[in-house]
């Protein structure tokens, strides 16, 4: 395996792990539900995407061809993350989850 591929794989792995961890930290420590929604939808999705990319590079550098499954999983995750965030936000608004002090504006009722 070429050293360049090794550096790229290691870098992508660490980046992905860091983003996944940061998304989880956001989920654990942000103050209310709507702010917590931001961590997983963005950071975690990108983190898993980076880990997938490193897997693609790893297996193609070993000469096993380009993994279509990884690409499919990544595309699927990027497509579903906003949908689940949206539907969860709707559910939270319906239940009337408490928002943190200092939130400007209000979720509407209809």
């Amino acid at each position: 395996m070429s050293p360049f591929a090794e550096y790229a794989i290691a870098f992508l792995l660490l980046l992905g792990g860091a983003f996944t961890l940061i998304g989880a930290i956001g989920l654990a420590r942000l103050p209310d539900f709507f702010t917590r929604l931001h961590g997983p939808t963005k950071a975690t999705t990108l983190g898993v995407g980076a880990i997938m990319l490193s897997s693609v590079i790893y297996f193609s550098a070993r000469g096993e061809g380009i993994g279509i499954s990884e690409v499919l999983i990544t595309v699927f995750l990027f497509m579903t993350a906003p949908v689940s965030a949206n539907i969860l936000a709707k559910a939270a608004m319906h239940i009337g989850v408490r928002t943190m002090d200092g939130t400007e504006g209000k979720p509407w009722e209809q």
Partner: peptide
């Protein structure tokens, strides 16, 4: 923008300051 967004959100999550959330129509 997704990459930039993730870095911004990551910076905000780690920094100790409180976020200022808002609902925008």
């Amino acid at each position: 923008d997704i990459v930039i967004a993730s870095f911004q959100v990551a910076a905000l999550i780690i920094s100790p300051r409180k976020p200022r959330p808002a609902f925008v129509c």
